[in-house]
């Protein structure tokens, strides 16, 4: 079978990462890059002359016969670029978050309804071994009926006003929530479905117009309740640290980046009564090439498989649009001193 020809739009940190992975995997080749920076474009021409480099992504889409395109540009550009890819019939991979708002994201959902191509949004935490294991444990039903969840996500990142597009609300859509926290919100929807109502409070101490501290209370459509507390302005967390505690009638699940702990009232699904602890070395699964973490490779393998099979994975653009409805409701509630807001009321119909 011929290699899938891949184009990357935006050859910054994440664009290079995906470029390295797709080029390193069997069955796909980095064919073209669209990158407006002269330095990056010229460096690529020197070091990798077999890749065609464009300063304008529209040129690339027009001239190259691509099987898939990866969009790894600042957030506010994602949707227009995604629509262009879809209109060219090119499978579309979009870095997270999908968009600045749900109604903006809706435009890409609509474009996909007019012309369906395989599509995916890069919620890479779904591909981390511990959080994957937690998903399978939740699906197995060993916890009985899930009642309540607690999420914390902290990183020592920002202790003065940040510079660049990520800290400009018009370009990024927000601060902490659009950064690391969007992953936690994606996991909340992956694990527990859609939220019926949220109440949220935020504190913008360092950033001014975007949030540095966030607290959200959830009422899910399933009746499960929960809360999330997050900040990128707390000390003592060299890397992003995430923890979910899930309480059910038959047991408790605790999952972090390093460990999965399950307490069960009775033996179930091969797990004994009491505590079972699984650590990262036990859960490790090798990948054909690891650049910056196996989760990125697993994400790419899933996307490329979907491209070949002409379908989209669970974490597709439509699912990401729903995460953005949740995010919009969180912002609206925080702006209204924690008044309950309904995600379904945001970001268009359906």
């Amino acid at each position: 079978m011929a290699d899938l020809r891949i184009g990357i739009i935006g050859f910054g940190k994440m664009g290079m990462l995906h470029g390295g992975i797709v080029n390193g995997l069997e069955g796909s080749t980095l064919a073209a890059v669209a990158e407006p920076s002269d330095l990056v474009a010229r460096a690529l021409k020197t070091l990798k002359p077999d890749v065609r480099v464009y300063s304008d992504y529209r040129e690339m889409l027009k001239k190259e016969d691509l099987d898939a395109a990866y969009i790894a540009t600042p957030v506010f550009q994602h949707v227009d670029m995604g629509i262009a890819c879809v209109e060219h019939g090119v499978s579309t991979f979009v870095e997270k978050p999908l968009s600045t708002t749900a109604s903006e994201a809706r435009r890409l959902v609509d474009a996909l309804e007019r012309r369906s191509v395989p599509n995916m949004v890069a919620w890479m935490m779904r591909y981390l071994p511990t959080f994957r294991r937690a998903k399978s444990l939740l699906e197995s039903g060993v916890l009985g009926k899930v009642i309540q969840f607690q999420v914390t996500m902290y990183v020592s990142q920002l202790f003065r006003k940040g510079k660049g597009w990520r800290y400009d609300k018009k370009k990024s859509g927000g601060g902490l929530i659009m950064g690391p926290c969007s992953h936690a919100l994606d996991l909340v929807t992956w694990y527990f479905g859609e939220a019926a109502f949220v109440n949220a409070r935020q504190n913008n101490f360092y950033s001014g117009e975007t949030e540095d501290f966030l607290h959200v209370i959830f009422e899910m459509k399933s009746g499960v309740t929960g809360w999330l507390d997050s900040s990128w302005s707390v000390r003592g967390h060299r890397l992003v640290e995430t923890r979910f505690d899930v309480h059910g009638t038959d047991g408790t699940l605790i999952v972090t980046d390093d460990i999965v702990k399950v307490f069960l009232e009775k033996e179930a699904a091969g797990l004994s009564r009491g505590w079972t602890i699984e650590r990262i070395p036990e859960l490790f699964e090798g990948v054909p090439i690891d650049i910056g973490g196996g989760q990125y490779t697993r994400e790419n393998i899933e996307f490329l498989r979907c491209v070949r099979e002409g379908r989209s994975p669970e974490n597709n653009v439509r699912a990401a649009w729903k995460v953005h409805r949740l995010i919009d409701a969180i912002y609206a509630s925080a702006a209204d001193r924690g008044a309950p807001k309904e995600p379904d009321a945001f970001g268009g119909e359906r």
């Binding site: 470029g19 390295g20 080029n23 390193g24 980095l30 070091l47 090439i289 650049i291 910056g292």
Partner: peptide, 10 residues
């Protein structure tokens, strides 16, 4: 690993 993936022999 990035240079490996991209095949940057140079």
């Amino acid at each position: 690993d990035l240079c490996l993936g991209l095949g940057l022999r140079g």
